[in-house]
Write a protein that binds this DNA or RNA. Structure first.
Length: 407
RNA sequence: GGACAGGUGGCCGAGUGGUUAAAGGCAGCAGACUGUAAAUCUGCCCGCGCAAGCGUACGCUAGUUCGAAUCUAGCCCUGUCCA
């Protein structure tokens, strides 16, 4: 369908919309007034990773379209501890830990959204503010009657667990109630009328809408994004080194840049639309590049996203490092560096030291497989000694490079 | 509280006394081919050691045995059904 509001047109043409509860209703509302909309985020780690970037960008679009983004941090839900994790994740975060995480996560939002007190300025709230105030009996009496177990059992999150015979705790079962409660609370406190989220949040969002309709007779809207996977079917944001973190102190800018530079050909257009502000005709042009020319589009993607999430300088530095490292075979400034003692260093220690191998055994396997290089030359002798005194380039495979620098 | 089924490496999943550091798959790393892509093929994939080897590891603990992921007991956890 075609939309009248800037908001839905923008979200639609850039590929953010998967499901929408009431397209006409939201379209009409967004066309005539400022719509405060929110998305909830986890506070379990000091940084979000690229898996959350779609949601963050959607808040940015909301603001670009003249509406008000509300970032909801799940401080309250985090406090409870996420029981869905496997055996090890029983750790309960302390309040201080959660607050520190929220502060750290906020730095990224500040790059992508404009915060303040204005009508379309973004705000950040913590659901701990209201969730920790809830009394159990009170909650049961007020929201309890609006949920039937019958219906809760039909939600995918519940159904899948039961079908796979995996444990589903009462705590988790209550998540959807708390989430629904959040939406109502935000509607009352901030006039919030839209909740967005990943497609897995659909059920939670709908619950919030229904709860608020029943309790407050207010009409709210929900919108979900498509589940973002890479072209080869993997979930976004995982690489060799683990998650692709948005915060600089969790992942150096050069590695962040490299993640986007190495994206699958088929994902380039989609990612440009979702993760950059480039105009659509420009994206169409980049996307149509074929063969090795698409690499130019990937560089644009990497630069744009790195600029947004980190800084323009970081993007430039990363690109410069990449081009001298890959094209010239030189040493870029952004490469990881390890000190090279005057007496030199064994190849194994060098590989472990710079983090290309987790253990000495792994370093040896890398060497045996022909993947270890010093100054571009493959090293097959695990006793190889790197002479001290001069800067040396060390590589694991063709993509991971580092510098050994005399100290 | 009871009956039954189960708890294996990052994940899934074989394995019921020695030839099992544990089949197979996925994920990951490297090589070849390329475009710092994909697909494909090949090798690697617990730690230490140049190596023979050593140390850890199959929910936890204690046993049986020359020898246990495999047998026994207790405990913890999960599922299904029952109270």
């Amino acid at each position: 369908m075609t939309y009248n509001s800037t908001l839905l047109r923008l979200l639609d043409e850039r590929g953010y919309i998967h499901q929408l509860t009431d397209a006409q209703g939201l379209d009409a509302l967004a066309a005539k007034q400022i719509v405060p909309g929110y998305i909830g985020f986890d506070a379990t780690a000091p940084s979000l990773h690229v898996g959350s970037l779609v949601q963050i960008m959607m808040l940015r679009r909301l603001q670009q379209a003249g509406h008000k983004p509300i970032v909801v941090m799940g401080g309250g839900t985090t406090k409870v501890g996420d029981p869905s994790g496997k055996d090890e994740s029983r750790k309960m975060l302390t309040s201080e830990g959660i607050q520190a995480n929220i502060a750290s996560i906020r730095t990224v939002f500040e790059k992508l959204l404009t915060f303040g007190d204005g009508p379309t300025d973004a705000i950040m709230v913590d659901n701990d503010e209201w969730l920790s105030q809830l009394g159990y009996i009170e909650l049961l009496r007020t929201v309890g009657p609006h949920f039937t177990i019958n219906r809760m059992m039909t939600f995918d999150s519940v159904k899948l667990r039961l079908e796979r015979e995996q444990p589903l705790t009462f705590l988790e079962f209550n998540y959807m109630i708390l989430q629904a409660y959040d939406f109502r609370e935000l509607a009352l406190r901030h006039g919030c009328s839209l909740q967005m989220g990943g497609s897995d949040q659909w059920g939670n969002i709908v619950n919030g809408i229904e709860l608020t309709r029943r309790m407050e007779a207010k009409e709210l809207f929900g919108l979900t994004t498509p589940l973002l996977t890479t072209a080869d079917g993997a979930k976004m944001g995982k690489t060799a080194a683990g998650a692709v973190w948005l915060n600089e102190d969790q992942l150096p800018a050069y590695d962040f840049w490299q993640y986007w530079r190495n994206v699958d050909d088929r994902d380039v257009g989609k990612f440009l639309r979702l993760f950059t502000d480039l105009p659509l005709d420009e994206i169409a042009r980049l996307e149509s590049l074929e063969g090795s020319e698409i690499n130019a589009a990937k560089i644009v993607l990497a630069n744009e996203v790195t600029t947004l999430c980190r800084s323009e300088d970081a993007a430039k530095a990363a690109e410069a490092t990449a081009s001298t490292t890959f094209a010239g075979g030189g040493l870029g400034a952004d490469l990881p560096v390890v000190a090279l003692p005057a007496e030199g260093l064994g190849i194994i220690d060098a590989l472990v030291g710079i983090g290309f191998a987790a253990s000495r055994g792994e370093a040896k396997r890398l060497i045996a497989g022909g993947g270890a290089r010093v100054d571009g030359e493959s090293v097959s002798d695990e006793n190889f000694h790197i002479a001290g005194g001069a800067e040396v380039r060390i590589s694991s495979g063709k993509k991971k490079h580092g510098v050994l620098r005399p100290n």
